[in-house]
Simulated assay, not measured.
Amino acid sequence: MSRFAVVTAEDGVLSVRGPRSPAVVELAPEAAGLLGALADWTTPAELGARAGWTAPAELVAGEVLRFLAAAGALTTGDEDGDEDGDLALAQWQPRDLWLHAHSRGSRIAGRYGGTYPFKGRFEPLPVNPAPFGGKRIELTAPDLDAPGPSLTETLERRRSVREHDQDAPITLDQLGELLYRSMRQRAAFDSPDGQRLADRPYPSGGSVHELEVYPLVVSCRGLDPGLWHYDTAGHALELVSEPSPAVRTLVRRARAAALLTEDPQVLLIVTARFGRVMWKYETIAYSLVLKHVGVLYQTIYLVGTAMNLAVCGLGGGDADDFALASGLDYLSEGSVGELVLGSRRG
């Protein structure tokens, strides 16, 4: 069995697939035991003997193997063979190849793109999440007409800056300005398909704008420590959680990921309200979320650079930790990105 093969239970049978083939092999209960035998190298004769078939076992096993090979679920060779004999294949993890093959292969996936798989079954999620109902801080809108550095200058100065000025932490007004310039909801409007859409400073597929930002504050002048949510429509911060062991875990993991010697002043946790995207898009939904995270990273980087703040995007985080700290459902809204933010030294 190829290390890229995936087995799922569907409609009472086991379905076997490979990431690059549209073929699916369905195994009845009598044949399901073959999968265990295929965990190691074997031959049609050995496979038939282990299955105990009364018909010419080698011929029956050969037919089964041909089906599995057509689905891209097998690798061939001998006991000394190596499926990952060259770098092109060895470099891929199964989960990465599956995401790449299906989000970039409409012929493989079948249903692909804006198919509205849940229209008529479920109502689309609202454009804005429900308020948290706790402490709320209204933020001041910056003057967008004030002079600033050019785009070229900002692009050339952009760097990942990990060190913060702990003697003069970032201020509430600075945090508010960065969120306003990068994340605020400029408008909301209805689409013909019945989904409420939004307009923000960065692009989003179908204008669904599923991303939210949760500033986790350690040190910010004018703002208490804790986990906050940015209300993109109202330009305000809502308190999600006071400092807690779960919140502290998020800070500790971010500090380790960014190789910081001290705690970050602010950790911006980017989440996705998955249903906003998955209500409309099929197969490519999660890959779209990741694209949106990338453009938001760049937007925050450029705004932070223009404001002379220290910004550093992180390569990974833990969605379970965020669910525990926020109390949000892992499958409904989960963390998909993090950036460290603070005042710049000098």
Rank of each mutant, 00 (worst) to 15 (best):
P19R: 02
S21G: 05
S21P: 03
S21Y: 05
A23K: 10
L27E: 11
L27P: 06
P29E: 07
P29I: 07
E30A: 15
A31V: 10
A32Q: 15
G33L: 06
L35E: 04
L35Q: 10
G36C: 07
G36F: 07
W41H: 06
W41F: 14
T42I: 07
T42F: 04
T42R: 10
T42C: 07
P44N: 08
E46N: 11
G48R: 00
G48A: 08
R50T: 12
G52F: 07
W53I: 03
W53T: 06
T54D: 13
T54H: 05
A55R: 14
P56R: 12
A57I: 01
A57N: 03
L59P: 00
V60L: 11
G62H: 03
E63I: 10
V64I: 12
V64N: 03
L68K: 00
A70Q: 12
A70K: 04
A71F: 00
A71I: 00
A71C: 05
G72Y: 02
G72V: 04
L74F: 02
G77L: 10
D78R: 04
G81V: 01
D82C: 11
G85Q: 05
A88Q: 09
A90E: 13
Q91F: 07
P94T: 01
L97D: 04
L97S: 03
L99P: 00
H100F: 12
A101R: 12
R107H: 12
R107K: 07
A109C: 07
A109Y: 06
G110L: 09
R111L: 13
G113A: 06
G114W: 02
G114V: 01
G120H: 04
G120E: 07
E123G: 11
L125H: 06
V127E: 12
V127K: 00
N128S: 15
N128Y: 01
P131Y: 05
F132W: 14
F132A: 14
L139P: 01
A141P: 00
A141G: 08
D143F: 04
D143E: 11
